[in-house]
Nucleic acid binder design. Sequence first.
DNA 1: TTTAGATTGACAGTAACCTGTCATAATAGT
DNA 2: ACTATTATGACAGGTTACTGTCAATCTAAA
Lengths: 162, 162
Amino acid sequence: MQNMNQQAEIFTNLILELFRLNGVLLAVGDRLTGPAGLSSARWQVLGVVEHGPISVAHVARTMGLTRQTVRQTAEGLFKDGFIVYADNPHHRRSRLMELTPKARAALDYVAQRQAQWASAVVANHDLASLNETFNTLYQLRQTLETYEETNADETQSSESDG
Amino acid sequence: MQNMNQQAEIFTNLILELFRLNGVLLAVGDRLTGPAGLSSARWQVLGVVEHGPISVAHVARTMGLTRQTVRQTAEGLFKDGFIVYADNPHHRRSRLMELTPKARAALDYVAQRQAQWASAVVANHDLASLNETFNTLYQLRQTLETYEETNADETQSSESDG
DNA sequence: TTTAGATTGACAGTAACCTGTCATAATAGT
DNA sequence: ACTATTATGACAGGTTACTGTCAATCTAAA
């Protein structure tokens, strides 16, 4: 099958390009948020807390990250005065994160910078291509996640190791 | 400009999708390479060394990573017997990494698994969409990198902070 | 030849993700 | 009410990326 080699090559190129783009986007995020005392990771967490008081575990689920990762980010946000913890009426240990005025100001600042940046960047691309790209990537992720769920057991079961 | 808001939204969605896809791909890479004693990062480095003896700094430039990051990965690869260091006739300190038979076997194993995986995944997508997506992402990265080079100075100069 | 600059490997430290483990707290089942 | 399970925060440790700094080395210029 000649076509399969071609597909595999295009697919590999696509993956490598995704990695590079990911790196660039993280750098951009840090540049946009840095002057406000934030980072890409902190910004994303605050973006969830912005919608209302919420626990660390809940944010983790929302963002698709682990509890521990969000906890670490939250620790830094608290230490730097971007969030406070409020008592949770439904759970004694699991307190709720809330934005401080400092965080509100930082988010407003970053939002303005991000909009400015997005406008400038997007001006060079047409709507249809971006939308189509989004759709393809979304479908690709669905395929990958389905495939992983189906085949992960067959080769990754390291339960007999311990 | 009504169109600008729409573009900004699609753009934001695209970025979030890129982050998610990146996470999934890293997980897949680790799953495919794990049984061979490798990881996504190690696999990529070995993929460069595979083409011939090469220094750490050269691999870093090839991959678009920092010298120090590749050095750390190389350290692990050496410790686990995947590479050896050969003298560099052109530079006394900068030795050249070379694959060991163990690495050769691991790469062959991973290549087979990766091809199998890629075939299965790609079967659900058509060549044209993947290719078009690659092109859009490539162009987008070019735009981003150009924009960063042009505007990075204006807001990121934190020299007056210290 | 000697000096100035760039490159390189090494080392230290940081950020952001991960897993594993533990005690505590909430919830479901009996 | 009691027990088993689940959810949560805390802590330890590992991976992969980054920056900064240093001495050694190579290269180019004077």
